[in-house]
Design a protein around this nucleic acid. Structure first.
Lengths: 139, 139
DNA sequence: CTACAAGTTCAAGTTAACTTGAGGTCAAGC
DNA sequence: GCTTGACCTCAAGTTAACTTGAACTTGTAG
């Protein structure tokens, strides 16, 4: 166990995140340092994976607080229902992003002056709008 | 043309966005009101579709400024290369979200005390990490 | 005609997620 | 033993995207 902990500079390199962010995340309780060597933090190599997970979560639109609830086994157990719910949200997001990607690709080719005038584009958007209003109603 | 423009309350209803947001978007140049009736804004019904598009864009992780550049034909023509690039970004995001969704579903079922200890979970995350570091390198 | 609901403006406030800067600590190399 | 570079703390600053509040305007219903 001794000797393989990393100091913050190494975590910065491996994660691509600035040191200030790592300190901030630690303060927020999203990651933990294993201890100190003098004044310097020491990190377990696993922290790099955790950071990747956090970045992915942010990408998925979760707040740091939500991520904390999902991945730190804060209580006696992780809330499985919450996880399922979040998985559903992500899947929903994926569906919408597919519409967007298609829309962007189309817009890049479409000769219509404004995309909002192109019937194909309009149809795609109408689909997305439908999804969105369904989402709104579910709240 | 006369008579079918909507006032802000109707847009609020149809879009689900608060009036303050609509005014803010107008100020930013993301949407336009067709004119005024006295002091009150009037909106073309199309604005509802535009708003849905904006919401989708935000969901995809674009800033309001980026959305402005992508969808308002500000200059003589829309920048097609930019659109293609953005489409690629969205597709990349979709790939990563799939990993997350899978991860969340797995985490909801996995009996391991901490997900970070589950080998299956670790493998999934490692895949995601790889994608992320590839992305970082591309900048 | 006047009351009211639904608009309006404009400045200031809010929240999340960081970043920056000033000033201090410490181990290592010369 | 002194300088340097990598780290530290803590308070304050930043940015995006809105929201809130106070004070003003207007079309419409009674």
């Amino acid at each position: 166990m001794l000797g393989k902990d990393m100091d913050i500079g190494e975590v910065v390199e491996r994660s691509g995140l600035p040191a200030s962010t790592l300190r901030y995340y630690e303060e927020k309780g999203l990651i933990r340092s294993t201890g100190r060597q003098g004044i310097r933090r020491l990190f377990d190599p696993d922290v790099v994976d955790q950071l990747a997970l956090i970045s992915l979560g942010r990408l998925a639109g979760f707040s740091l607080d939500e991520i904390g609830k999902m991945f730190t086994p804060s209580g006696p157990h992780v809330d499985r229902e919450l996880l399922l719910e979040k998985a559903g949200e992500v899947e929903q997001t994926i569906r919408q992003l597919k519409v967007i990607a298609k829309g962007l690709l189309h817009a890049a080719q479409c000769p219509a002056p404004s995309h909002l005038e192109c019937p194909k584009f309009q149809r795609m958007m109408r689909g997305a709008v439908k999804i969105q209003s369904e989402m709104r109603e579910r709240r």
